[in-house]
Simulated scan of single mutants.
Amino acid sequence: MRDWFRRFMQGRYGVDHFSHFLVILAFLLMFIQLFIHHDVLRLIISVLVMIILIFSYYRTFSRNHYQRYRENEWYLKCHNSVKYFFSRERNNMQQRKTYKIFRCPNCGQSIRVPKGKGKIAITCPMCKTEFIKKS
């Protein structure tokens, strides 16, 4: 049985990060569906779950490696940008006690200065614009 499946999967794309995300999304929607009592909404969610699962299996068994690779790269690009945003915000929240973060009025670059220094002249490291702010 194991050899049969291994031979069957030869030349097929297989499972990647995007496929994992789709399956987890489908299970999450199924869990949410348990708490919905409106029949039409439950039907819509169950159809959506079926579409997501069918697409996930289609991607897994596909032989078009190039297209599946592009889809996975798109997903990873979106995932990493969201992940980077939240890690940057978490980092800013941790530094909020000791530093104040300003944005350059010219280019928008984030500039970190120590708190409690009074009015200071801040020079942007990117565009060399100087502006005065209270830290």
Rank of each mutant, 00 (worst) to 15 (best):
K117L: 12
Y84S: 14
I120S: 05
Q33V: 08
S110L: 06
I120Y: 13
D16C: 02
H20Q: 03
E89I: 09
I44H: 04
Y57I: 05
I45W: 00
F27G: 08
C124H: 12
T98W: 06
N64W: 11
L25R: 13
R70W: 12
E73W: 13
F27L: 04
K128F: 08
R112N: 08
F35V: 15
F5M: 11
V49K: 03
V82S: 04
V23D: 01
R96L: 05
C127L: 01
F31W: 15
D16A: 07
Q33R: 15
P105S: 07
L34P: 03
L22F: 04
I24A: 15
S46G: 00
N92K: 10
Q33D: 04
W4R: 04
S87W: 12
G108S: 04
R6K: 14
L22C: 03
I44P: 02
Q94N: 05
K115W: 09
V23F: 00
D39C: 03
G108E: 06
R6H: 11
T129A: 01
F85R: 10
G14M: 01
R63N: 15
F55M: 10
C127N: 09
N106K: 06
I51E: 09
F27I: 05
P114H: 12
G116V: 14
P125M: 12
R42D: 06
V40K: 15
L29K: 06
R7S: 12
S87G: 09
R90F: 14
F102E: 06
H17D: 03
N91Y: 05
K83S: 13
I54G: 01
N91G: 08
Y57N: 07
V113G: 08
I44V: 15
N72L: 09
